[in-house]
Lab assay of single mutants.
Amino acid sequence: MKHYEVEILDAKTREKLCFLDKVEPHATIAEIKNLFTKTHPQWYPARQSLRLDPKGKSLKDEDVLQKLPVGTTATLYFRDLGAQISWVTVFLTEYAGPLFIYLLFYFRVPFIYGHKYDFTSSRHTVVHLACICHSFHYIKRLLETLFVHRFSHGTMPLRNIFKNCTYYWGFAAWMAYYINHPLYTPPTYGAQQVKLALAIFVICQLGNFSIHMALRDLRPAGSKTRKIPYPTKNPFTWLFLLVSCPNYTYEVGSWIGFAIMTQCLPVALFSLVGFTQMTIWAKGKHRSYLKEFRDYPPLRMPIIPFLL
């Protein structure tokens, strides 16, 4: 059985960083990364991007050496992705923050609204209902991160945790300040508006959870398998008939419901920014589905049925 020789060059300087002799033909890129780490321990596998061309796409960890368009002496180019952190850690951090930050404003801890309001309670029912909904949303997200989601990528750049936390924590503080303010004004149409908004919120939260469970069942634990998601017997998953990412559709719907319930401008802005970002993600995933699966359902749109 022939063996391969693998040289790894710096993608920027073309400097030879490592030479691997007698590499098995069936070795994966993940195994080559581990061998590279032995000579350069500062670059652990998650930091490494190996590619066939200095400006090309990163090879997948599961790619097999003998199936790549290389000879028995293969040249790979290395790029440092920077310090990495696990997706689970990032999600837990960015979701735990809003949960606790919101509660600080809800309980009106000292130095927020003035001494005479310390630890007082709002007289408006919608304020307490909003706290329950907000807390439920982020507790749900935390539990899904721990027990439901299966991540195709193990890590992301460390800098992302600061960007994500600034976004989630900042908006949580902004909306919580106004919703729990002693001078907060309840919704214009009173109980009817709150009940309608609560119904929207609850339905969308159930829908979002149902989609996450359906997506989880598509991917076996520990794998990166991708399949076309289809509706199940659960009615909340029937939205798969019309959109590629109904989890985002339901998520946006939840925040629209919360915005109607609280009639709070920061919540509306958070919903708008979230919708914009999720639309970008949904379009990317939709394109990926179309590219990977020739039999992908043609009627589906990325996030909004028939429109977007």
Rank of each mutant, 00 (worst) to 15 (best):
R150N: 02
M213P: 15
P266L: 05
T166M: 00
V70G: 05
H153D: 08
K67I: 13
F236R: 06
Y184N: 12
L17P: 07
Y4T: 06
T89A: 11
C133Y: 05
T28N: 11
I203Y: 15
K22G: 05
K16T: 13
Y4F: 01
A172E: 02
F201H: 13
P298N: 06
S254N: 01
V127P: 00
F78W: 03
S210G: 04
G114M: 15
F136P: 15
H40S: 03
V202I: 15
H149L: 04
R300C: 02
T145P: 02
N208D: 05
R79Q: 10
T225W: 01
P45V: 00
L158R: 15
F105Q: 01
N234A: 15
T72D: 03
R216C: 14
V202F: 15
K224I: 01
I132N: 03
E292A: 10
F91V: 03
V243L: 06
C133S: 11
F258I: 13
T232S: 11
Q193R: 10
W255Q: 15
K33L: 08
V88F: 12
Y250P: 15
D10C: 04
A173S: 10
Y95A: 05
K140T: 02
H286S: 00
P25S: 08
E15K: 10
F105C: 12
F293H: 14
K55V: 14
R159P: 06
T166K: 13
S135D: 04
L50K: 05
F201N: 14
V90S: 12
I228V: 11
R14I: 03
L35R: 08
H153A: 02
T37A: 09
W43I: 05
E24Q: 09
P54T: 02
D61P: 12
Y117C: 11
K2L: 07
L241Q: 11
Q42E: 06
F240H: 15
H134C: 00
L104S: 04
K285E: 05
E251A: 08
E94V: 04
K291D: 00
T237E: 13
P45L: 10
S86N: 08
L215R: 00
R150K: 05
E94C: 08
L146M: 00
S210F: 11
E7S: 02
T120Q: 13
H149Q: 04
D118L: 00
P110H: 12
L104K: 09
A130E: 14
V267N: 11
K60P: 05
Y289E: 14
V148E: 02
V273I: 14
Y178S: 12
L76M: 02
R219L: 08
C204V: 15
F36S: 08
A173T: 06
P231A: 06
Y230P: 14
D10F: 05
L307V: 12
E94H: 05
I29M: 05
A74G: 14
A27S: 11
F100S: 09
L272R: 03
K60Y: 07
P110L: 07
P187C: 13
E7T: 00
E94T: 02
I85K: 01
R79V: 01
C245Y: 04
R219H: 14
H124N: 00
V88E: 10
L308R: 12
L242H: 02
K12G: 01
I101N: 03
G257W: 14
A173F: 05
T145G: 03
Q205E: 15
D295H: 13
K22N: 11
K195A: 14
F136C: 03
F275W: 06
T75M: 05
L35I: 02
E15W: 08
I85T: 11
K67Q: 08
C133I: 01
